[in-house]
């Protein structure tokens, strides 16, 4: 009996003594490792039996927690590249398990489009989702924005906005789309879209992602206004952003929240070395196309 108690106490003490090292090891593990591996969707479908919707929700939540943790942990500086291909695989897996899962489409639109630049893949997902969520105006709204802003396919954008307007029972979207395309520049359009998205968002990680992008685009807008003012006054485009600061067209040096430096392209377009993303993105394979759609 005494021997049992001694072994028990020793085990307990040993357990306590390794806890610190164990926790440190867990915290130091590569973040990509934590997202885990997604087995073939066909296998998951078979194994999940009648719990496909639950597994789909689990996939999306896992991606969301991974991405949220990454943002929080690195305080907007991401030395470890987020595993975007794995995130994309999970989101695609999620919609194949539950094609009605709105969180999956929303996350794809929020992150895949902006941070990874995979607009075509996101549009494919949205088209796939529209076949199931036939009542939802958000999906054509997202697709319309992607077509107008990223692909500059205004005819395609108008078609999606019209669909969004019809589903939402309001002409507002159609009018907004028209106004953005005709009267405003590209940056204003993006800012208006991001503002609407950020306002309706309750998830802190995604909200933060929108805010960061808005901050970056507001800086771009300031530079654009200063550039246009310079061109009106001087009669030619400024050579650099620094010229605008030195000559008083910009009051303060613009700060890129993604850690890059703003510069002017030869045609005067404002660009940044960060490309509006924390790190360069990995390629998201064509395998991620929604197989279920075919």
């Amino acid at each position: 009996m005494n021997r049992t108690i001694i072994i028990l106490v020793l085990s307990f003490v040993s357990y306590i003594s390794i806890l610190g090292a164990f926790s440190r090891y867990m915290a130091s593990r590569p973040i990509a490792e934590k997202l885990g591996y997604v087995p073939s969707v066909e296998v998951v479908k078979a194994v999940s039996a009648d719990q496909k919707e639950l597994v789909s929700a689990f996939f999306v939540t896992k991606v969301l927690l991974y991405f949220g943790g990454l943002l929080e942990k690195q305080q907007n500086e991401l030395p470890i590249p987020p595993d975007y291909p794995a995130m994309s695989r999970m989101i695609h897996g999620a919609v194949q398990l539950d094609p009605y899962n709105m969180d999956a489409y929303y996350f794809a639109q929020s992150i895949l489009v902006w941070d990874v630049g995979k607009v075509e893949i996101a549009n494919e997902l949205l088209d796939y989702g529209m076949r199931f969520r036939a009542w939802d105006w958000y999906l054509p709204y997202f697709a319309g924005f992607n077509h107008a802003y990223f692909l500059k396919d205004y005819a395609g954008a108008a078609r999606y906005y019209e669909q969004a307007g019809r589903l939402s029972g309001s002409d507002l979207l159609k009018n907004l789309a028209g106004r953005y395309l005709q009267e405003s520049g590209k940056t204003d359009m993006a800012l208006a879209y991001l503002y609407a998205m950020e306002k309706g968002e309750k998830n802190p990680a995604i909200k933060k992602s929108f805010r960061t992008r808005m901050m970056a685009f507001q800086e771009v807008r300031h530079i654009e206004i200063a550039r246009d003012h310079y061109r009106q006054t001087i009669g030619r485009l400024p050579a650099t952003v620094e010229v605008l600061i030195q000559e008083g067209y910009l009051r303060t040096p613009p700060v890129d929240p993604y850690g890059g430096h703003f510069y002017l392209e030869l045609d005067g377009r404002v660009a940044t070395t960060s490309k509006f993303a924390f790190v360069s993105t990995k390629s998201v394979g064509k395998k991620n196309k929604v197989q279920g759609a075919h």
């Binding site: 009648d50 719990q51 929700a57 899962n101 969180d103 309750k202």
Partner: peptide, 21 residues
């Protein structure tokens, strides 16, 4: 509440999954 856009739908998913389980 972990859901971004479908909290009620997720509560239904979880409840029905629990019932089923």
């Amino acid at each position: 509440t972990l859901s971004m856009r479908q909290v009620t739908e997720l509560s239904l998913t979880l409840s029905l999954s629990l019932v089923s389980f």
